[in-house]
Design a protein around this nucleic acid. Structure first.
Lengths: 229, 229
DNA sequence: TATCTTTGCGTAATATATACACAAAGACAG
DNA sequence: CTGTCTTTGTGTATATATTACGCAAAGATA
């Protein structure tokens, strides 16, 4: 590293891949752009990094502005730095990967004259810029990560029946799991607390609700436990 | 994303964590800084991203300038964007993670009046900026990655005895492995070609040399094979 | 020729992953 | 209130993978 270089410098943005689960399918949050370039095109929520905030703060802020949800699972994904990602000028984008409980989430009606909507991951529209690449990378990361870290719980409500957990895993991994083996494995891990409450308003036998025990998880990790499914 | 923002903008750098293996220990390449800030302090090789190159190209270029090695294993690691990483002004750094065959490598004597040297990973000096954080992250990534992708071969010479492979894995993972189980596992995978050549100039029974068969690996991957050790 | 170090190999014991089926709960329709 | 439908809840046998472990032969050196 020699001396600080001069202008022109690339602009820096953050883009967030926000995953939600509606109890049925894995969804992703998109906004419809109100301005050029790619006006009226769907895109990942994101924006410029301010000079007085870290990149993580920028991601949190953008997410809050778009989703009104705090204390979300958020991690950095990858940085996209090709030359012509943005037709206006050079823009380097640090992408983030977020998981939200779609239930708790209120879609903000048209910020900056933007539409905001959930799309099924399996059925997304064409996206602005290189956002399809970003989404693809996020999906890969989610699929890998869900198998060796208990991040699935970030997508579920705090109390859930076992079947919800299984369906979530199936929809992320993309293939069916054996229900009995899945239950056995999870139960042996001891990360789930069985509540006395049951599901309500279901047209069949009601299942018990469970809670993820994050304290227990932290404790087990210290002893070398490795989550895997 | 609204409109392109104005100056001031952060500067963008790349920093490379270059791992090498000398047949005995895992090493990392550092340069001694010739200018302020952190003059005379050891640091990761890196530098500013030019306006006409992608960030990957910047990393490759910096690496070539420092190491004279091309066609290296190189992947993006993480982007560091805290406000005061660099005391001069705001600098966002995209870090990369590289593996080189230390044998093939020629250390360039004092570029820009800089010293360049290999350090044992277990015995690194204090580093400039937040480079210790970057190194820590790179080490974690390496330890994880070496277990589920055959990247270890990037550090070894093209022909190596089985013991070299085992020692490499042990020094990366940081604990001893059972020699027989390690061999069995690797041999069952079928990724190694046994050559008719043997080790030379060793004061004990000479072992056969092996080669990593990357074509076979690509082929197996297509059929759903997953490398793991 | 004895000594030293490393190579090269296989099997038994244990743990983990997979495959698989049936009875009970509860809503709803008739 | 009875039958039907769907989902819940559970256990075992089999196959597969992981771990632990010891001994003879090669080759250099003294």
């Amino acid at each position: 590293m020699t001396n600080t270089y001069k202008y022109p410098r690339p602009a820096i943005t953050v883009d967030c891949v926000v995953f939600g689960y509606d109890g049925n399918e894995l969804n992703i949050l998109l906004i419809k752009r109100g301005i050029e370039p790619f006006v009226d095109c769907w895109a990942l929520p994101g924006g410029f990094v301010r000079h007085d905030e870290t990149i993580d703060e920028a991601a949190k802020r953008e997410l809050l502005e778009e989703t009104f949800v705090k204390n979300i699972y958020l991690e950095q994904l990858y940085t996209f730095g090709d030359l012509y990602r943005d037709p206006r000028e050079r823009v380097i984008s640090v992408s983030y990967f977020a998981l939200v409980r779609q239930e708790e989430f209120q879609i903000k009606a048209s910020t900056d004259a933007n539409e905001v909507a959930w799309f099924k991951v399996q059925n997304t529209p064409a996206l602005a810029f290189d956002h399809e690449n970003i989404l693809e990378m996020a999906l890969k990361r989610l699929k890998n990560k869900v198998r060796y870290e208990p991040i699935g719980f970030e997508l579920l409500p705090p109390k859930f029946p076992f079947s919800a957990l299984e369906q979530l895993y199936e929809s992320i991994i993309g293939k069916p799991l054996d229900r009995r083996n899945f239950r056995n494995k999870f139960q042996k891990m001891g990360l789930l607390t069985k509540l006395s409450e049951k599901q309500e308003k279901v047209a069949h036998k009601r299942g018990f609700l469970y809670q993820f025990d994050s304290d227990k998880y932290e404790q087990l990790k210290k002893d070398g436990f490795e989550f895997a499914i």
